[in-house]
Computed example of a mutant assay.
Amino acid sequence: MNIMTASELSGAKMDMGLPTPLYAADGHRIFWLGNTDETAFRCNTYLIVDRHEAIVVDPGSKQYFSQVKQRVAQIMPPEQVSGMVLCHQDPDVAASMTDWLAVNPSMQVFTTPRTQVLLPHYGRSDYRYYDVTEEPVYALPSGASLTFVEAPFLHFPGAFVTYDSLARYLFSGDIWAALDMDWELTVGSFEEHIEKMNLFHLDYMASNLAARGFVRRIEKLAIDAILPQHGSIIGPQHVTAALDYLRTLRCGTDIIYADMD
């Protein structure tokens, strides 16, 4: 498998039968795991491997657990996955949580308290919970770290994003998500991509106040790529435009209650 850097993300070629490597340096690797379903609401699951530790990011629905697990197995034994990041509790993000806990019961679950309250409704409450609001920086064996940044009301009160300090990748969950039948791994034209993001953001995100407030929290981070849970990866040439998109976005209550201005 060919490893690519952030500057090489655009135009990356995939073999849909294999995990797609996105980054590798100093014992630290990142993969796109899929899935292959032909739908506008395609879900992205990612895997961070750092020496002996591995964390699956937004593992996805139960429907695709077998496919995701198979792709992990092409990289490492699935039972060695040591953690999962759940940016919020929706089933397309988190429903396979119980399947992963069956693979490795000692796996840590990285999430917020508001999400944590709801996760046991998937059928398991006996797991190692890591509160990302109490400990927003998680050290990895290589010396890299994951920083968790809260993103309230985008679109869940307990939503958050995950920043990888070594790759400088931002795993953004539903933020910058897009709906697109003509899907590609990375964004080509950002201007054309805006319409695909609007299909998701105008209805799901709370307000411009929430969007702008979140941008203020992350705008000083050095971000080389944005990896959302739906749609295409936003490469380094489009990161500034992606931040500007949120700054000016009118969505949710801005639209529903527009006559209240």
Rank of each mutant, 00 (worst) to 15 (best):
G143C: 07
G143R: 08
G143H: 14
G143M: 06
G143F: 06
A144T: 04
A144I: 06
A144H: 03
A144G: 15
S145A: 13
S145G: 03
S145C: 03
S145V: 00
L146K: 07
L146I: 10
L146E: 06
L146N: 13
L146D: 06
T147W: 06
T147L: 10
F148N: 00
F148P: 07
F148W: 08
V149W: 01
V149R: 06
V149Y: 07
E150L: 15
E150A: 15
E150W: 14
E150S: 15
E150F: 11
A151H: 08
A151N: 09
A151F: 03
A151K: 03
A151T: 09
P152C: 04
P152H: 01
F153D: 10
F153G: 04
H155V: 13
H155D: 13
H155T: 09
H155Q: 13
H155W: 05
F156K: 03
F156Q: 03
P157I: 04
P157Q: 07
G158A: 12
G158V: 01
A159W: 04
F160I: 03
F160M: 07
F160T: 00
V161K: 11
V161E: 14
V161D: 12
Y163G: 14
Y163M: 14
Y163W: 13
Y163D: 13
Y163R: 12
L166V: 13
L166H: 05
L166Q: 15
A167V: 02
A167L: 06
A167N: 00
A167I: 01
A167H: 00
R168N: 11
R168Q: 15
R168L: 05
Y169N: 08
Y169W: 09
Y169V: 09
L170A: 13
L170I: 13
F171L: 07
S172N: 12
S172Q: 14
S172G: 15
S172C: 15
S172K: 14
G173C: 10
G173Q: 12
G173R: 04
D174W: 06
I175W: 02
I175M: 03
W176K: 02
W176Q: 11
W176C: 08
A177Y: 04
A177E: 07
A177G: 15
A177W: 11
A177L: 11
A178N: 08
L179V: 02
L179C: 03
L179S: 11
L179R: 12
L179A: 08
D180R: 04
D180K: 01
D180E: 11
D180P: 00
M181F: 09
M181S: 10
M181V: 09
D182V: 05
D182L: 05
D182H: 05
D182E: 13
D182K: 07
W183K: 04
W183S: 04
E184A: 10
E184S: 13
E184P: 07
E184Y: 09
L185Q: 03
L185Y: 01
T186I: 02
T186Y: 07
V187T: 01
V187L: 00
G188V: 07
G188E: 10
S189R: 11
S189Q: 13
S189K: 11
E191Q: 15
E192M: 07
E192V: 09
E192N: 15
E192H: 14
E192G: 12
H193D: 10
H193F: 12
H193E: 14
I194A: 12
I194G: 09
I194D: 11
E195I: 05
K196G: 07
K196Y: 14
M197L: 05
N198Q: 11
L199R: 03
L199M: 08
L199T: 00
F200W: 05
F200T: 02
F200K: 04
